[in-house]
Design a protein around this nucleic acid. Structure first.
Lengths: 133, 133
DNA sequence: CTCGGTGCAAAGGGTTTGCATACAT
DNA sequence: ATGTATGCAAACCCTTTGCACCGAG
């Protein structure tokens, strides 16, 4: 180990992290982050946003969420929790972390080691389930 | 409702379904299905494979699985069950269906209706966890 | 005979990458 | 001074689509 690449702190990196942290519950996509940061630093490029997003995720500062569609979404909370997605309005909500002991059991009984999971619940959110279609 | 489009049965549709059904536990991607079918019907096109894959999924004959990587995988079993993915060798394993009552509860308490879920467990499969790195 | 399905090839859209330059250390 | 991070733009990759022809009903 040892030989880890030396990492530099740049304005771009800080701004990308800020943007994700300021996104609250929104779970923005990369191009949304791009737009936000660009409002502050107009010269930043999309490639840089992606590189910093991945670096931040690798260092455990932010989380990446895959919701079944093609694009990745970013989350100020690094991990552990799950998500609920409304199939009608697209609203995304954080759910508390779960141990998933029951579910992981099947895998463990097959001799596998479970180290993590991704869980997305689908349905109708309160607003969509209440209002007329 | 009523006015449903009339659907035709073609050799291509049947072969795509056959290929998915014959894939067992492999969870093949679209281009893998494409290759398999092409071995039997060399003139079939990728576009047709995708169209039939989606039609079969919409009709509930096969399942689509998103594992966090970029491409979709197809499953002879329509739904209900979960998956385990080995982070080292990429092996995919089916897990029995789970109700996820505990997890869905948090969403229900917020007033949402939960109609489905996608759960992927990550870790080291038996082979990778046992053998030396 | 009809009109839904097919093949082909080009377009799409998110993400990654090569390269010369800028800048953190 | 050193070499990592950036900006730009092209490349990638999976997937979707427009269009003219084919073939199931």
């Amino acid at each position: 180990m040892g030989a880890e690449a030396r990492r530099r702190t740049t304005r771009q990196l800080a701004l990308v992290l800020d943007a994700v942290r300021a996104s609250g519950t929104e779970h923005p996509s990369a191009d949304r982050i791009f737009a936000r940061v660009r409002a502050v630093l107009p010269t930043i490029s999309l490639g840089t946003v992606y590189r910093n997003l991945h670096r931040l995720a690798a260092e455990g500062h932010i989380g990446i969420v895959h919701l079944g569609d093609r694009l990745a979404r970013f989350d100020p909370m690094p991990g552990g929790h799950d998500h609920f997605v409304c199939e009608q309005c697209g609203h995304i909500e954080d759910l508390p972390a779960t141990s998933l002991d029951l579910e992981a059991n099947a895998a463990r009984q097959a001799g596998h080691q479970v180290t993590g999971h991704a869980l997305v619940l689908y349905g109708l959110c309160r607003a969509c389930g209440t209002s007329p279609t």
